[in-house]
């Protein structure tokens, strides 16, 4: 046994070299957040809870076309379409349920939606003690959508789905019967 090794042992050299990393991090910026007192800034395009959106005149966008249900890989969405009670030539979703216990947050439904009625938000903190509490109805999705409108617009913009709607160009877009400007709860 050499003298060097002896000194290293009595001076706790190995421990010191380990603590060096610890001391170095004491002067760096902390990564940990004190959730729920502090919250993370989420990037654009974050795939959080899915919401339903409305037009400017408060009318719901969803036309009940079932495309989101068709594309959903987790079979989390179920749509029941019917004739709109106020406008007999329009289709609407009589029932729309999104089961967040099944949802894998892949965002396919948002891509499939022809009217930008769906968007993903930065909402993530929704929990429930029951399964039923995480099965959202159309009304719940719309309420959540109203709450997170900015998020949803940001998401659509990030995914390049916003410009097509507002470009004013008609070709290549789905054309629906004109929407009356009167306000209706839908």
């Amino acid at each position: 046994m050499g003298i060097k090794k002896f000194l290293n042992t009595i001076m706790f050299g190995e421990i010191m070299s380990g603590l060096k990393l610890t001391f170095r991090h004491m002067f760096k910026k902390a990564v940990t957040l004190q959730y729920p007192h502090e919250k993370l800034t989420l990037p654009a395009g974050y795939r959080g809870f899915i919401v339903q959106r409305r037009y400017e005149n408060e009318q719901e966008r969803c036309v009940g076309c079932d495309l989101c249900e068709a594309i959903c890989p987790a079979k989390a969405i179920s749509v029941v379409g019917d004739i709109h009670p106020e406008f007999p030539d329009r289709r609407y979703a009589k029932e729309y349920t999104l089961d967040f216990t099944r949802c894998i947050f892949c965002g396919f439904c948002v891509v499939a939606c022809p009217v930008n009625a769906l968007a993903m938000t930065k909402e993530y903190a929704h929990s429930s003690f029951t399964r039923e509490g995480l099965i959202y109805s159309k009304e719940q999705l719309l309420t959540l959508g109203d709450k997170c409108e900015e998020d949803s617009i940001e998401y659509l913009k990030f995914k390049n789905m916003w410009d097509a709607e507002n470009s004013g160009k008609e070709e290549g877009r789905y054309h629906f019967p004109p929407i009356p400007s009167v306000k209706s709860g839908g």
């Binding site: 036309v63 009940g64 076309c65 495309l67 289709r91 009217v115 877009r173 789905y174 054309h175 629906f176």
Partner: peptide
């Protein structure tokens, strides 16, 4: 032809 396939029953 209107491109309303999503709401068309024939779509």
């Amino acid at each position: 032809h209107p491109l309303d396939c999503p709401v068309c029953d024939c779509g």
